[in-house]
């Protein structure tokens, strides 16, 4: 499955949806909320990136989870249910659970950010600011192009020096790095003169106000979708706030909220998956 389903919306819709999910995941430090977010994020990653990539990611996710999970009990000896004693450390179930939930939250947030980057590319992100700030958005566009170019050139300078063994010059050390920087700076400055000319030749500064080419028109359908997403985020935020107000890890894990309060947040977390699923079903139903 791919991002085709999201491409039919103006980029603002998925951008707001994912931003809402990421924010609520960060603030909803409660086992059910975090669990729902992590499961949804994992399913979304599986659906969009495939099993192999998702399994590959476990290589950093599991150690991270384990690390946060064991570090928390070592540092914060809180709670009422003593599990065991490790040397000088008292390990409580509550602090272990806190670490586990915290680690899961971190992983869920990172996975959602990856999911967002996958659906809303930098090009679409820039499109969001284009109408209001054409010049800033142009600068961002130039930066996106020039930074990778600089990195590639740095490697070409280093390659040229490393490959010229006859020079007897040492390719390592501070002097060599300064030399690479020197070469890159003069090179970039020189190019910027020519690029400046190219820009002026194409009417840069010829008009008081730049306009902006919009590859993503904002239609009524986008407005409806955006309204639904924003309403869901607001509702879910209110519920998450209520849940967090009644939830404690210490001294013992207790909550006062109804299960129903979880529903809006869970709906929000599964919405990206639902979008993928609807697109898939529509495709299957095609005559």
């Amino acid at each position: 499955m791919d991002k085709a389903a999201f491409q039919t919306f103006h980029p603002a819709v998925p951008a707001v949806l994912f931003a809402g999910i990421i924010a609520l995941t960060m603030f909803g430090l409660e086992p059910h909320l975090v669990g729902a977010s992590l499961v949804s994020a994992t399913l979304f990653a599986l659906a969009t990136q495939g099993v192999a990539t998702a399994l590959d990611k476990l290589r950093w996710q599991l150690p991270l989870l384990f690390l946060i999970c064991i570090i928390n009990p070592l540092y914060s000896a809180n709670g009422t249910t003593l599990l065991f004693k490790l040397g000088r450390f008292y390990i409580y179930a509550e602090s272990l659970a806190y670490g586990l939930v915290m680690g899961a939250l971190l992983i869920a947030v990172l996975m959602w950010i990856e999911g967002m980057a996958y659906v809303v590319g930098h090009d679409e992100l820039l499109a969001l600011g284009r109408g209001a700030l054409p010049t800033i958005s142009l600068m961002a566009s130039m930066t996106m192009r020039l930074v990778p170019q600089l990195v590639r050139r740095a490697s070409s300078v280093r390659t040229a020096l490393d490959a010229t063994t006859a020079s007897g010059a040492n390719g390592d050390g501070k002097a060599a790095r300064v030399r690479v920087m020197d070469a890159l700076m003069s090179w970039a400055l020189e190019d910027s003169l020519e690029r400046g000319d190219a820009m002026r030749a194409r009417g840069w500064g010829a008009s008081a106000r730049r306009s902006s080419y919009d590859a993503h028109p904002f239609r009524l359908r986008d407005l409806v979708a955006l309204t639904v997403v924003v309403c869901l985020i607001v509702l879910a935020a209110a519920c998450v706030r209520a849940i967090m107000g009644g939830w404690n890890f210490y001294p013992s894990m207790t909550g006062t909220s109804e299960i129903a309060a979880l529903v809006p947040a869970v709906l929000l977390y599964v919405l990206p998956l639902a979008v993928l699923a609807v697109e898939r079903i529509r495709w299957e139903l095609l005559p």
Partner: peptide, 25 residues
């Protein structure tokens, strides 16, 4: 070729000069 290209995507590059003139969408 590389030095006269201003923007990072092809569509933005094509529109760059037109944007400079403030041309309607």
């Amino acid at each position: 070729p590389a030095n006269q290209i201003v923007c990072d995507t092809v569509w933005h590059e094509l529109a760059f000069g037109l944007e400079n003139l403030g041309m309607p969408t």
